[in-house]
Amino acid sequence: MEKTVVILGGDLAPEGRAVLEAAGVTTIATPPYIDRSKVIAAMQAHRPDAVIVRLLAEQLGAEEMEAGGRLRHIAKHGVGTNDINVAAATARGIPVTMTTGSNGHSVAEHALALIMALVKDLPRQDALIRDGIWDKNRYHGRELRGQHLGIVGFGFIGQTLARMAQVIGMVVSAFDPHTPDHAFADGVTRDIDLDALLGKADIVSLHCPLTPETVNLIDGRRIRMMKPGALLINTARGEVVEERALVSALEDGHIAAAGLDSFAMEPPGIDNPLVHLSNTLVTPHVAGVTLDAKRAVSVMSAEQVLAIFKGETPAPRFLAR
């Protein structure tokens, strides 16, 4: 198969690259977080038949799509397509696919890990011991059992986290106007009012996609509606949260702590207070890229590319719209 695929923003896992190479596809990977000019240069240099999008500094737009002259497919290495102008791709007859379900368990586990680390006071205890302080009176850990987890966005990831939390003994409710009623089963309460959920949850975990409707969904007003002393967990997209308002609420103690895997600007600037506050636990947008998930996502995105090359139509759940 004489085809070329450019992987934009970092290489695939070896298993994914092997899928393409076994089919005779030429693959080229760029460094992570390249800007538009470098994307255009790569498209012009390699004239790919398809691209796999990993980590870009700017959205993949119409000019980049047209730069190579023969682009037939855009595959997202993951499920968040906010870094792709899907409307521009659709207008040009270029399908955009996602690896739906491939890394959901990893993201849900990461959210739970952030919750447990903060509730059990682990980052602060680790810092105290490293400073030579052994004082059990400074331990502020709590039980998760009986605490109210409010999930915003109840797709596959939110539902997976809910099941995990219920096993621990947490009370779970969720807000998602797009998820059908039958998903709210086995004791998960459907909240039809986001403000009401925020006002009663001990822990709020965000799992909604980034859309025009969800930009700053958790804004200053809603942050102040959260239960005093609550925790905020974000393994979705940084732009879902109004960061300045979150900083203010963390500094004055209205929000006890935040576990953040994503930021409005990535990588965040060194002057971003969220990476310096003592009551934040931060990770570099890695919830969905465990070794297991990266293999699964890489293989699925490579298989989707080959399917398009063969003229196959992806299942609707894999198509971005």
Rank of each mutant, 00 (worst) to 15 (best):
I84C: 07
Q304F: 05
L114F: 01
E64A: 14
E242Q: 14
A315P: 08
E63P: 08
G10A: 08
V53F: 11
V107R: 04
V86Y: 15
M225A: 08
E15Y: 03
L197H: 03
L217S: 11
A256H: 00
E109M: 02
L149G: 01
L210Q: 08
G10R: 02
L20V: 06
A256D: 00
V39S: 05
I168R: 01
L56Y: 02
E251T: 13
L194W: 14
V299E: 04
F309H: 10
E266W: 10
E242F: 01
M300G: 05
V240F: 11
R244M: 12
T100E: 09
D193S: 14
T27R: 01
N137W: 06
I233P: 00
S205C: 06
A22V: 06
A89S: 07
G288P: 01
V86Q: 08
S262K: 02
M65L: 09
A236M: 09
S102Y: 09
D131Q: 14
L55H: 09
T160E: 14
A258I: 02
H254N: 03
L122K: 02
G101M: 13
E21K: 10
P180V: 05
A257N: 00
M226N: 05
G169R: 01
V25Q: 05
V172Q: 07
I7K: 05
G16W: 02
Q59T: 09
A185Q: 14
H77M: 03
W134D: 06
S205M: 09
L231K: 00
M116L: 15
V96R: 10
P31C: 05
M164L: 13
A22E: 14
L306T: 04
I308K: 07
V299R: 10
I223E: 00
A108R: 07
P180Y: 06
H77D: 06
Q166I: 02
A196Y: 03
Q159S: 15
Q44V: 11
E239R: 12
D176K: 05
D135M: 07
L12R: 03
E266R: 08
L149I: 10
V241S: 03
L217F: 06
F309A: 11
P48W: 08
Y139E: 03
A165S: 04
G16N: 12
G288L: 08
R17L: 12
T26W: 09
G158W: 08
V188A: 13
V289W: 15
A174W: 05
M170S: 10
A75P: 11
H254F: 00
E66P: 05
F309G: 07
N279Q: 02
T313D: 14
